[in-house]
Design a protein around this nucleic acid. Sequence first.
DNA 1: ACGTAAACGAGACGGTACGTCAAGTCTTTCT
DNA 2: AGAAAGACTTGACGTACCGTCTCGTTTACGT
Lengths: 204, 204, 204, 204
Amino acid sequence: MAKQPNPARRSQRSRQAILTAARELVSEVGYAKLTIEAIATRAGVGKQTIYRWWPSKGAVVLDAFLALSESGPDQDMALPDTGDLKADLRVVMRATVAEFADPAFEGPIRALNTEIINDPALAAQYREKLAGPVDEAKKARLRSAQRAGQLPPDADLDLALELLYGPFYQRWLLRSGPLTPQYADALVDAFLKAMRPDIGGSAH
Amino acid sequence: MAKQPNPARRSQRSRQAILTAARELVSEVGYAKLTIEAIATRAGVGKQTIYRWWPSKGAVVLDAFLALSESGPDQDMALPDTGDLKADLRVVMRATVAEFADPAFEGPIRALNTEIINDPALAAQYREKLAGPVDEAKKARLRSAQRAGQLPPDADLDLALELLYGPFYQRWLLRSGPLTPQYADALVDAFLKAMRPDIGGSAH
Amino acid sequence: MAKQPNPARRSQRSRQAILTAARELVSEVGYAKLTIEAIATRAGVGKQTIYRWWPSKGAVVLDAFLALSESGPDQDMALPDTGDLKADLRVVMRATVAEFADPAFEGPIRALNTEIINDPALAAQYREKLAGPVDEAKKARLRSAQRAGQLPPDADLDLALELLYGPFYQRWLLRSGPLTPQYADALVDAFLKAMRPDIGGSAH
Amino acid sequence: MAKQPNPARRSQRSRQAILTAARELVSEVGYAKLTIEAIATRAGVGKQTIYRWWPSKGAVVLDAFLALSESGPDQDMALPDTGDLKADLRVVMRATVAEFADPAFEGPIRALNTEIINDPALAAQYREKLAGPVDEAKKARLRSAQRAGQLPPDADLDLALELLYGPFYQRWLLRSGPLTPQYADALVDAFLKAMRPDIGGSAH
DNA sequence: ACGTAAACGAGACGGTACGTCAAGTCTTTCT
DNA sequence: AGAAAGACTTGACGTACCGTCTCGTTTACGT
């Protein structure tokens, strides 16, 4: 049985250096060309210190980005809620679109997604730490809309989020079209129509 | 300047052996553990013959799958068109969902998607050779629906396809939910509602 | 600037395995067909471990033979000195001739000489580590003969060694004649005559 | 049984181009870095044309140098014979020393010697075509000296040549000393002394 | 405050695969 | 049919990293 290291004795100095080095390097050379050796060298750290605390390259990079969000203990990821659902969603989607169109942001996120796609364990961690809370915030806004009668009370919110973000995610990942504010608006419009209750007389 | 090899002299024997070996190996060991050396060995081919004709591992694998579709000169990828759009789309989406849930199929496709996400050049080739024709077939069915008055004549069909497939693609890639026939139906329903024209009095 | 490995951490186990494997292989397949990869495999060692410590194939082989002589810290390479120069030299030359006629010995030595001829750096190392001490022992015997009045006191000993060994070296390298005890004796005789002082009246 | 090519149909154009290219390249990059491919390319010739007519790289290079001497049908390689053996040998040895000290000359010759040392077949060809005739010319001069009473009539001329050239060959190959006119003279002196008959009173 | 056990930096190790190079063979095309 | 052109299989090259495994050297408890 392998001996587990004692987290209490973990060097925070080394941990921070590794995460910072990982973030820098993934930006400089891209995820595919990122190596553990390079991270260790850049961080001034022994390779073993990385292998001791992380199971894979992907885990280090994920942690590197998680660490960014750790600054504020419970950072405000709540969506705007003015009462106008369409307007609020447009604001959010336009911001999202802009964020993913930013070259500095997209490289690492794209790399992370690549890993997540192929590594279920990493995906679970990602969902729990990053995507989960964000999705919860989105669903909170949708629930508010349900209470306001702007969405059907029995709507499947997980499916709803997929309808809203799935098309965008696909376009972004596959680079199959431009990411513009107009596109964001079109997605919101389509989403709201899709969420409307069935109309009497929608013959077959 | 590097000298280009002459495609006219290319050995079809070697080409087929390489593509077959690539297909087999990607199924056996997965894309990540697939190596050029293993392909060459399995194919009974020199490594240089692979490097001569393909720029990357991803290109070989893509070609390996493209070659599968080359059998029929214009294989029938047309969607069913019974006149009942909803029924036809349900058939198609249920089949798609089943296909992507099949473990034998999903491994290589997932691997290919990973590569495409990070390699724009590969993505372009993929779009041109595989996704393009398929999308065209789908749009043909939607145009037929437009002519039948089941979809607005001015609908953006690229966006339409994204609305229909994007949610599914995201759920599949991120494994964020089950891929069931019910899910397929729900996507079709939401899609059709999203495509309906605006209704008078949709006070935002 | 390339980082130098730390010799203090060098694995003596690996070093010995490499030198032994090199010696074996050079005997089995000859120097020309000797490869670093084969040495590494035979020694159960990573290629990098060879590249880390030796600059070239020749250096490994040279070291392999040097290591043989390292057994005794200062092995006795002194030549016999019975007082009878001609008899002593005959013993030495006959032994040398026999040694170089031995097929087991000649292969590696021939290989080493080939390398030395084309690689001045290797030659310098060879001279310093192997040939130098041996030559010094030979010159010691000749100096003893000078003190005994058997050789002129002002004789150029480097030239003398060349006169004695050069003909033999040439015949061995080029395989231009048989290496027999008689030949050894003839060389000694010629050498001694060549070293005699000029005789009065040797009209040019 | 391998089919032999028909020498009658051999292209002299290609042969000359190959030999010239070989000579040029061995001067430019040295023998070790000389490749068949480079010769073929430089000569504007298919690789097979080289493999068809020569068994090895060494054979091509040897032929390349032999071809140089083929210009004159029986080129004058006779040694000077003024009647003064010592003077004649000094002239010859000084010329030899100068020739081998010339950097332009020494590279290819050194390379050729390396090959010859390890390839008995090549050595035989070399001896027959190049060294043989030259040695014969040298022995002719020594025979003339025998007739003139300057050398013992029963002297072993093969051994004699070895005594004269062996030391020089060794010094040149191993770079173990300077190649000067004084050195040439010293060799001639030592050689002549070694060839003198035994003197009465050479105790034991 | 001190001794000790841990985590640490450093980096050598046995390996795998890389992408390149040249060898020698085989095939196609041209003359 | 010989020769050019050049694609082919083979296999060694030297490099880059992998993940594991010592080495001393801090570091920070628990006495």
